[in-house]
Amino acid sequence: MTTLLKELFDATVDGDRETVLTTVAQALETGEEPGVILNEGLIAAMAEVGARFERAEFYVPEMLIAARAMQAGLAVLQPHLVAAKVKKVGTVIAGTVKGDLHDIGKNLVSMMLEGAGFEIIDLGTDVPPEKFVEAVRESSPDLLAMSALLTTTMPGMKLTVEALRAAGVRNGVKIMVGGAPLTQRYADEIGADGYAADASKAVRLAKSLVA
């Protein structure tokens, strides 16, 4: 790994957004392949963040800050990745269900997935079942990730799974769910394909679902 990529890696793990931005720009200037910057700089760094999280060396605050730095770098890199036709690991539609406006958890998972090489189509918050169905029809994603922070809005997940089934698009997509009030049991009950308790586990789950 070049010194510059090592610097990008460290800055991403540390959540140092400014350094991430400058090193990504420098790496591009020096003619580094966008795919290499992504894989060896950002994706490798987020894998390290996930590993530290699982070793209880990192917690949600560090993960949020690292993910935010990664995303800033990715935004600069994005047009170059498109131009270089770098292949994605998979496409994920993400959204917080109807009636729920909370997005910090959903955004963290989205960022971690992005950091693992997924392409994210973020539908935002307060997303009704029909909107999920429409998005699945339009983009045929590999994964659909739903989030809910409130006990009162969890039922929106069940409604969405049912709507996907009714529209005949359920089988073409894997469904994963998460959020503070959720459990594996609830995920099983509503017929989701997986549940993850935190953002790091969500990445592992997503990878296993598209494998």
Binding site: P61, L64, I65, R68, L101, D103, I104, N107, T125
Partner: peptide
């Protein structure tokens, strides 16, 4: 002011975690 949909909330919150 609704914070959950405030454009700056997530960023300010993240800034204030450390």
């Amino acid at each position: 002011v609704e914070l959950t949909t405030h454009p700056d909330f997530a960023d300010v919150f993240t800034d204030r975690l450390f």
